[in-house]
Amino acid sequence: MRILVVGAGATGGAFGTLLQEAGRDVTYLVRPRKQEALRRDGLRFISPTADRTHAVKTITAADGSGPFDLILVTVKATAFEGVLGEIGAFIGPGTTIVPILNGMAHVDRLEQQYPGQVLGGLARIVATLDGDVVRQQVPLTSLMVGGLNGNPVPADVSEALDVPGVDFSVVDDVVGALWDKWAFIAAAGIINCLFRAPVGRIIAAGGRSKILAAIDETEAVAAAAGHSVSDAAHAQAIGILTEPGSAFTSSLYRDLSAGLPSEAEHILGDLARRARNLNVPTPLLDLTLIQVRAAVQP
Rank of each mutant, 00 (worst) to 15 (best):
G94L: 08
G94C: 07
I97G: 03
P99E: 11
P99I: 04
I100K: 00
L101E: 13
G103L: 05
G103K: 03
M104P: 01
A105I: 02
H106K: 06
V107Y: 05
D108Q: 13
R109F: 04
R109L: 14
L110K: 03
E111M: 01
Q113K: 14
P115Y: 13
Q117M: 09
Q117A: 11
V118R: 05
V118M: 10
L119A: 05
G121I: 04
A123E: 06
A123N: 06
R124I: 02
R124P: 00
R124Y: 15
I125K: 02
I125Q: 06
V126Q: 12
A127I: 04
T128K: 13
D130W: 08
D130A: 14
D132K: 07
V134D: 04
R135H: 14
R135Y: 12
R135M: 09
R135Q: 13
Q137D: 13
Q137R: 14
Q137Y: 15
V138W: 12
V138Q: 14
P139H: 08
P139K: 09
L140S: 11
L140R: 14
L140Q: 14
T141W: 02
S142T: 12
L143P: 01
V145W: 00
V145I: 15
G146N: 01
G146D: 04
G146A: 01
G147P: 04
G150L: 06
N151K: 10
P152T: 09
P152W: 00
V153C: 07
V153W: 01
P154T: 11
A155D: 15
A155N: 12
D156I: 00
D156V: 01
D156Y: 14
A160S: 15
A160M: 09
L161H: 09
D162N: 15
D162W: 08
V163K: 09
V163R: 10
V163Y: 14
P164R: 12
G165P: 10
G165Y: 11
G165T: 10
G165W: 10
V166L: 07
F168V: 10
F168C: 09
S169L: 02
S169K: 11
V170G: 03
D172M: 02
V175T: 15
A177M: 06
A177K: 09
L178A: 09
L178M: 15
W182V: 02
W182I: 01
